[in-house]
């Protein structure tokens, strides 16, 4: 979503949402992320107002004290920014890509199944299988920090078997045009 993003032309306005809206956003985050109210309070303290940054193509970004924390396309899932995910990597279930796939991801490509189910990749065990359309943190072989946020296109056990096709669609990745925006 942020392969090409120019703040000066792609942002149309910034407004604080009504407090009822902020409450429902908070609830959405608590239900969509693996996060406790205490941890969310660290990230977005109740006394801090959230700012809704309206962007092109029905993309909404939300900031606290200027720093982008999460974003949403239409009324889809609430994606954490990669910078936030790197600080709190356990808020999303994890998948991993092998070392060979890293440079493709950094070029803005979606992740193909073979990069996830090869020996260097990682998929959750069968008893923790993820349904299709799960928001995931994407880690990389041999690296400590997540490299992208995406959404699975197949159920994870199916993903394990697939020899081709897109396994995870990327929402934001290291080095995209959202990455340099530390403050808006």
């Amino acid at each position: 979503m942020f392969k090409k993003f120019t703040p000066s032309t792609d942002i149309s306005g910034q407004t604080p949402p009504k407090s009822s809206v902020q409450r429902s956003l908070r609830n959405a985050l608590l239900s969509q992320w693996k996060i406790t109210p205490e941890t969310l309070e660290q990230i977005w303290p109740k006394k801090e107002s959230l700012i809704h940054v309206k962007c092109r193509d029905h993309l909404s970004m939300y900031t606290v004290q200027g720093s982008p924390l999460f974003f949403q396309h239409f009324d889809g899932p609430m994606y954490p920014t990669l910078r936030l995910l790197q600080r709190y990597p356990s808020i999303l279930p994890k998948v991993g890509i092998d070392r060979g796939a890293i440079r493709f991801l950094l070029g803005g490509a979606n992740m193909m199944c073979p990069g996830l189910n090869s020996p260097g990749g990682y998929l959750p065990p069968a008893e923790e299988a993820l349904p299709a359309e799960s928001m995931v943190a994407i880690f990389a072989e041999g690296k400590e920090h997540p490299i992208a946020v995406g959404i699975t296109k197949l159920e994870s056990e199916e993903l394990r078997r697939s020899k081709k096709g897109v396994g995870v669609e990327i929402a934001t990745y290291l080095g995209d045009d959202l990455w340099p925006l530390k403050s808006l």
């Binding site: 693996k34 996060i35 406790t36 205490e38 941890t39 660290q42 790197q86 600080r87 709190y88 990597p89 356990s90 808020i91 279930p93 994890k94 991993g96 260097g120 990749g121 990682y122 959750p124 065990p125 923790e128 880690f139 072989e141 920090h145």
Partner: peptide, 16 residues
């Protein structure tokens, strides 16, 4: 890659 994947229980400090 590590396979442990703990659910956050309480207040987790941010990673450095």
């Amino acid at each position: 890659m590590s396979t442990e994947d703990q659910a956050p229980s309480q207040d987790i400090p941010p990673k450095e």
